[in-house]
Design a protein around this nucleic acid. Structure first.
Lengths: 240, 240
DNA sequence: AAGTGGTCTAGACCACGGC
DNA sequence: CCGTGGTCTAGACCACTTC
């Protein structure tokens, strides 16, 4: 019997959804035991491998921890490490109101570095969108996004002002965002950035260069961001 | 038939090893196709799920990329993102000779913050090991490790001077390192760090606070590191 | 002994991409 | 159409932990 999913969602994702909801709604707290593979299999009428798949990939996300011979438990909420999220999503996951001010938005043809990061010829038409991001009334970061203008015609006419760029891409352009490779280093605020972010010149900033890929591995967007080190810190998990 | 592994290594790991070796040795180059799930299953005499497991977790490590309907391909070598490696391992993966100078090595009992990060009482006996790391003759980073003295008696007598701390822990103390949670931000060099690293005061530095856990989720070591931003950059991958 | 996660089988059907 | 990866079954045995 091939399990029929009324909505086309795979069974293991449906199971994950149930568990996630129970954690988010406070029914399950960090440290609590999650149903075992065998119990989940019975409850959701799936095979062991499917229940296992659900738990294994929740563990990879850091939502639960599994211990052989003992069980599966809700993990301490270390924020969503290694999770690709838009600025809007990040802020709302911290219960902050995200704000954004567009400083620059035009199509250019001399953004060589951005074009290279997007695997495009040097003089391609590139959308450049520079935004000052703030939260709780304070400047937070300066982010510049670059996209292939040929691939996203009319993007600058979309309500980026109101809406999340991730949302526009996923909803209006049917892009499936997959993963992002990021390079992180530290740098000192130059005069312009210092003024924009309301911090002293030469203050240390976190600089993140991010190339966002579709699920199929095609580069979609290059983002260069400068983050106030006193307002931001990055959380990641590395595996051995 | 339960596949017998002559050495106790799971079949999927053996398959991964074969693929890794073929990539490392130059038999397979980035972009080349890897054998399909079905081929691997035949070649290694395992079931489809096992061959699949091997490829799926290689993909999670960024070694290969899989595309539905097309195949599995060797990924571009973006360095080992999200991979927990010792300084020695990192350097050697970049073909650099790692050097280290111990600046401080003692057991203390007033390292409250480190104790807290290790989930120990505030005044626990804590090993503090401060090392200046260099490569290619240049100072590179200042790293301070903290460990539970009760758990690693005699550690300071081990040949940390010569050997990798990771190596000592894994070999002599039978610790299985599992993962690390890291907080990254930017900071300015204070006078002492500036002098130690041979850089101007107030230069931006990458600061990384790292808690390393065993495979069973027990905190093993807390590492506070300051990295010269002109010599270091951190590469990570985030998933949606 | 009982329960848990880890590995594995020998198949199945589906969705997708290229021909 | 055929080969690919994605999901899934209905079990099995093993290793580990707790009782």
């Amino acid at each position: 019997m091939t399990a029929k999913n009324r909505n086309g969602q795979p069974a293991y994702q449906r199971i994950q959804g149930v568990i996630r909801k129970r954690i988010d709604s406070g029914q399950l707290h960090p440290g609590d035991a999650v149903a075992s593979e065998r119990d989940l299999a019975k409850i959701h009428q799936v095979s062991l491998m499917t229940a296992r798949h659900a738990l294994a990939s929740l563990e990879r996300e850091g939502i639960v921890e599994r211990r052989r011979g003992i069980g599966t438990f809700v993990a301490a909420p270390k924020i969503h490490f290694n999770k690709l999220m838009s600025y809007t999503e990040q802020m709302s996951s911290r219960s902050l109101v995200a704000g954004s001010k567009v400083l620059f938005a035009k199509v250019l043809d001399n953004e060589n570095e951005a074009a290279a990061r997007l695997s495009l010829p040097p003089t391609s038409h590139i959308i450049k969108l520079e935004r000052l991001r703030h939260a709780a009334g304070e400047p937070f970061a300066l982010e510049t996004c670059y996209l292939n203008a040929a691939e996203f015609p009319g993007l600058l006419d979309a309500p980026i002002w109101r809406d999340s760029l991730f949302g526009v891409l996923e909803r209006d352009y049917k892009v499936e965002l997959g993963y992002a490779d990021e390079e992180v280093d530290a740098t000192a605020a130059d005069p312009r950035i210092a003024e924009t972010l309301s911090i002293p010149r030469r203050d240390p900033l976190l600089r993140i260069r991010q190339v966002i890929y579709s699920t199929k591995g095609r580069p979609i967007m290059y983002v260069l961001g400068f983050y106030r080190s006193d307002r931001h810190n990055l959380v990641i998990r590395r595996f051995r």
